[in-house]
Amino acid sequence: MERSNGGQNVKWALLGASTIAGQYMVSAIRAQTDGAVRWVVSGKAERARAFAQAHRIERWSTSVEEALEDQAVQAVYISTTNEKHYPLAMAAIGAGKHVLCEKPLAMDAAEAAEMVSAARSAGVTLAVNHHLRSAGSHKAIRALITSGALGRVLSLRLFHAVHLPEHLRGWRLDNPSAGGGVIMDLTVHNADTVRFLLQEDPESVIAETATSGMGAGVEDSAMSVWTMPSGAMVFSHESFTHPFTESGIEVHGTQASVFARGVMAQEPLGRIELVSKQGRGEISFDAAEIYGSVIEDFQSAVARRASPAATGTDGAKSLMVARAVHDAARTGARQTINYGEIE
């Protein structure tokens, strides 16, 4: 289904010929009115050429500069390994391009803060592909919370333990310098989910990690407990090694509880139930394609200076939570999160 983009014809360059770009983002961009992918860039010429041919993209290159020099390109989507997010985003911002970056936004808080500041100074949109907040299921859970249907929220439990698909293995499992490990891959998503649902930032975390069968030099499982300003308790569980479980969210309040299963996914899947003294009932939600919503919001931000679904600030704060979980597990000590001047 073609989507409206506020009258803005946005031409894109893909920086990274990634799996997610091929499976989801090319079609999501083209689903917008006049949405177009003009370039794909990869560090390997054969990969760039093959990706361009497979997805009918006119231009490919191994040179980021070549794509950024194209005045017709207004936005870039970055989906490289994590350590390249910062230099690529800064180059794109310097060239006056709008940026949609894969999570995590950067490798550390200092890089993230610099990216947010640079985009603001350049007057371009910086967004992060925290796609879960664009899912109809997550929007429905947030609506239940904000409507008061749950009463005062007491606790939230996220279980994002999955079995990492074969085609996504590699650097995620054995390359800490590239940002590998379950914390930078999944905990950062959980951090954004909690911030989106509760509309507040975690204050401190305690955590433990493990290598439970897949990681080599990086953690493949993590559990953490977070304190929130409201007093709500948060438990977050992530893993790459669980083949027979399902993801989900539970939110427990003084008046009702939400049980959502199968909603931590790239597809608009899952089921949501609300349980209260009135009984148990299923909650319907919009099953629109998730990445199409991400791109639609991003291009509306480009066209009207509105806000994308997840801003650079959202990405920076979720990264800070993930880094705090990593440090808490490493040191065995509670980590207090200082968000500094990220706003």
Results as ranks from 00 to 15, higher is better:
5 N>M: 03
10 V>F: 06
12 W>K: 00
13 A>V: 12
23 Q>N: 06
24 Y>T: 04
25 M>I: 04
29 I>R: 00
30 R>K: 10
30 R>S: 07
36 A>Y: 07
39 W>Y: 09
39 W>G: 11
40 V>G: 05
45 A>H: 10
46 E>F: 06
55 H>A: 04
56 R>D: 13
58 E>N: 11
59 R>F: 13
61 S>F: 07
64 V>S: 09
64 V>G: 01
65 E>Y: 10
65 E>P: 08
65 E>N: 14
67 A>S: 05
78 I>R: 09
79 S>K: 13
83 E>D: 06
83 E>N: 05
90 M>L: 12
92 A>N: 08
106 A>S: 14
107 M>S: 11
109 A>S: 15
111 E>I: 01
119 A>Y: 13
125 T>G: 06
128 V>Q: 00
129 N>L: 04
130 H>C: 09
131 H>W: 11
131 H>D: 12
134 S>E: 03
136 G>T: 07
138 H>R: 09
140 A>W: 00
149 A>I: 01
150 L>F: 02
152 R>V: 09
154 L>M: 13
155 S>G: 13
157 R>L: 04
160 H>S: 01
162 V>T: 14
162 V>R: 15
166 E>Q: 09
173 L>V: 07
185 D>E: 15
185 D>H: 12
186 L>I: 01
190 N>T: 00
191 A>V: 04
195 R>S: 15
197 L>T: 00
204 S>I: 05
206 I>R: 15
208 E>T: 15
209 T>K: 14
212 S>L: 15
219 E>K: 03
224 S>L: 08
225 V>K: 09
226 W>S: 06
227 T>L: 04
236 S>H: 07
239 S>W: 11
240 F>G: 06
252 H>S: 02
258 V>L: 01
259 F>N: 07
260 A>Y: 00
265 A>V: 08
276 S>C: 11
277 K>F: 07
285 F>N: 01
287 A>S: 08
298 F>L: 08
313 T>R: 15
318 S>V: 03
325 V>P: 01
328 A>D: 12
329 A>L: 12
330 R>T: 06
331 T>R: 10
332 G>E: 15
337 I>E: 07
